[in-house]
Simulated assay, not measured.
Amino acid sequence: MTYQFRNPNILLAIVAALGLAGCGRPQSDETSAQGGAPSALVTVLSVKPETVVLVDELPGRVTAFRTAEIRPQVGGILEKRLFDQGAEVEAGQALFQINSDIFQADVGSAAAALQRVEAGLVRSQGKFDRAKQLVTSNAISREAYDDAAADVAQAKANVAEAQATLRRKQLDLAFTTVRAPIAGRSGRALVSEGALASVSSTNALATIQQIDRVYVDVRQPASQIDAIREAAQSGHLDDASKVPVTIFAASGKPYPVKGRALFSDISVDPGTGNVTVRVEVPNPDRLLLPGMYVRARMPRGVGHNALLVPQEAVVRDPAGTPQLVIVDDHKRATRRAVALGEIVDRRYIVTSGLQAGEIVVVQGQERAKNGAVVETAPFGAAAAAVTD
């Protein structure tokens, strides 16, 4: 069958299209034969030995550095509260005033009794002095002299007893002003004016807590302490007792203070299997309050020459074995099985399968086929250039 094209423009368009298609096919084949697919771009990191501190993040409770319950040492009616509730108080500051009328009267009575026995001592001393002069001339008997000496000794004892009684009465009078035994922050008053303060009462008048320094009692599994001890004895870890302890709020925000571990308890809680570790923490801004729930990052050892890689550098095979993609000097990628240790600051410690100075692919492992040549860029600075 023969077709006739009446419009020459249509005929020219068809010829041009066929010519372009014919020219494009050989050019594509030539490009494939000459260059092939471009190399994959990956970000890499050179692994260097580091010194790392291994830590455990554990729960703990804040305890006041010192706590004093304010109790009366004499009984009586409370006349005044002399401090602001919740305020800072100094050691020796007056907190409560107990009615002192009875105690002032007792002091006056004891002072009078002292004066009486002191007068008796003066009289006995005078008799003894005269007897001492007379006994040398045999004007009095030796027995009379001995009686005079005994009277002086008795009078001195009476004076000493009266002085002690007066001192005790003065102390009782001083105790009518109840003072703070320590410096710290006062709590609420547990009694009000007009209440009867009793020495035998089990209720305190108030409580003072020193919180410019606090304790954080951290609960640590006893099994972990055994592991730390074994690692230190084997030489794999150095002692971490001098490494500061970081304290975190329940929300995860760190406090701007560092603590130090003091000691661990000598007994294990049979219910939980935990041991309490006490940490002393400076608290100048009073951010940590007694009873608060916090978390402590407890160091348990210092490791040297550790090899660490970012978590995103680790890939796993279908069996779940961790692997790293290593780039050699010829920029050829190779997958290698490794053994991983703990995570420190979102990085794995590689315990075996990796040597210091090797280049590890951090991002773009899916594009780095085993044995393929790759283009590399430093991890971090050029990470934004790598896209999946």
Rank of each mutant, 00 (worst) to 15 (best):
Q115W: 00
A155F: 03
Q125S: 11
I182K: 07
E79C: 00
T165I: 02
G120W: 00
A153E: 14
V62I: 15
I77S: 10
E143I: 08
N99M: 10
V159P: 00
S109Y: 03
G92W: 11
S186I: 15
R66K: 10
A144N: 11
D56A: 15
V55D: 12
G86Q: 13
I98S: 14
A153W: 02
V89G: 09
D146L: 10
T51L: 05
E69F: 03
G126W: 06
G120M: 06
G184D: 05
V62H: 05
G184T: 11
R179W: 01
L173D: 04
G75N: 09
L54D: 06
E57S: 08
I102S: 09
A144G: 05
R81N: 11
I102N: 09
V152A: 06
E50I: 01
E57C: 00
Q97R: 12
D106H: 08
V159Q: 02
L54G: 02
R185F: 13
L114N: 06
S186K: 06
Q163N: 07
P181L: 07
E143R: 11
A87H: 07
A105T: 14
A174I: 05
A94S: 13
R179I: 12
Y145H: 14
A64W: 06
F175Y: 11
I77M: 10
L171K: 09
E118K: 04
A144F: 01
L82R: 06
V178K: 09
T176D: 10
L114D: 04
V117C: 01
A91M: 13
Q73A: 13
L134E: 13
D101P: 00
K132L: 12
R66T: 14
K169S: 15
P59Y: 03
G92I: 07
D146K: 12
R71G: 03
A183V: 14
Q97E: 13
A155I: 04
T165P: 00
K169R: 15
R66I: 04
Q97A: 14
Y145K: 12
